[in-house]
Design a protein around this nucleic acid. Structure first.
Lengths: 226, 226
DNA sequence: ACGGACCTTGACGCGATCTTGACGGGCGTC
DNA sequence: GACGCCCGTCAAGATCGCGTCAAGGTCCGT
């Protein structure tokens, strides 16, 4: 089921969008302000987010920026403002699309479909990785050790592990990992990677001193083996 | 350099967009009809495509459909029609964004940036060189010997090998190799090359004393044979 | 305000890698 | 045959990248 998050402070709009989306068999959750939106996103990443710019607490663009630190979820921005500068700002902050109120429902739904289609490419969200030493369930965000005990990961550790596990056996460069786990603004903080690679190894490697799952490719990046 | 393809039958629009994009340091190519657009795409995939719907030969939506059978390149559709149905059709055919003429250049450029940002899903060049004695996978940075065992190369060795392997059979001069592997400041450190050519031969030549893959051209440079 | 979980940042040691200089051999020229 | 040029070979020292650790700092919920 495709999961859509609608963020708008006007109850009327929230209601209209929710009803129309539910009628198309989307699973919809609604938030009235930025904080609760970020909260929901943290708990469960939506497949697409509909975001109004004029929010009571945080600015919509600010929500977008924070979101983009950690995620690539498609975001369709909604706004009453026709001002071109606002559009530019939102798009550069990481919005995928910008729809001006008032808008036709058909067009809106088509843009949502387009956004979901794009997002679907890199998120095989519900996949599970199993090995002798651990089971990683990326759909449920849950990990089990070889002895059956739960392994706990921090959000950043999990994001790293996920981008590595998406391409088992393949080289993933430093830059790719930093972008995926910390956001597009990070590119040179190699020490972060060293610290986290270390932490991951302690949790998934039988012998962290001689890693077999998380292998480093000197000067380039890392490689994950199931 | 980011490569943008502009497809529009109106010379005036083509010119305006090309000039504005080039001013932002994009590499731009323009096509006036659908067939030549598909031709260009076939030769070299752009990072983003700007596509007008009203083309003289093929319909824009048709171009989009054919394109989407083979590629996921971001496409920004341009149209004079405000009609909602057209938007829906284009978006469902695979467009990433839909901009209605007339539009502000700032907004247009922001949408282009957004499209490029999404499309940049860091896939590296995936060229592979195979011979009896080894397989070199430059996308994965992985090398296998004739016996199936892994061959390990240091970062500098890879850079050298890559610049040589890009032109199999062709002469590559000392200066080219030094610039590619060590940077533009290096040009006279021939001894580096000797040391590394030596190391490479030990790893890829069946008989390092009589090299067949990495051949030296006295006084000029080296030549790589598959 | 307090405490805990998490993220950031700097320092340090070790091993791999790079740099540098020296030496010897093949080849052509004088 | 002697010399110079260019290349291959080797090994020692310098440097770099990585793993490791621990001390703040930040953000959150209680």
């Amino acid at each position: 089921m495709t999961f859509v998050l609608v963020v708008d402070d006007e109850p009327h709009i929230r209601r209209t969008l929710t009803i129309n989306l539910r009628a198309r068999d989307y699973e919809v959750e609604a938030a009235a302000d930025g904080r609760s939106a970020l909260q929901i996103i943290h708990e469960r990443t939506p497949d697409v987010i509909v975001l109004d710019l004029g929010l009571p607490d945080l600015d919509g663009v600010e929500v977008l920026r924070r979101l983009r630190q950690t995620s690539r979820v498609p975001v369709v921005v909604l706004s009453a403002r026709h001002d071109s500068d606002d559009k530019v700002e939102a798009l550069d902050a990481g919005a995928d699309d910008y729809v001006t109120k008032p808008f036709g429902m058909d067009e809106f739904l088509a843009r949502i479909r387009a956004a979901i289609r794009r997002g679907a490419s890199d998120e095989h969200d519900h996949f599970v990785v199993e090995s002798e030493d651990f089971v990683l369930d990326f759909g449920e965000r849950q990990a089990t050790g070889g002895d059956g005990g739960e392994i706990r990961f921090t959000p950043t550790e999990w994001r790293l592990l996920e981008t590595l596990a998406k391409k088992p056996g393949h080289l993933v460069t430093h830059a790719e990992l930093l972008k995926a786990a910390w956001g597009p603004a990070y590119g040179r903080e190699l020490n972060y990677l060293r610290v986290y690679a270390n932490q991951l190894r302690r949790k998934i490697e039988p012998d962290p001193g001689a890693p077999v799952h998380l292998v480093t490719e000197p000067g380039i990046g890392y490689r994950f083996f199931v």
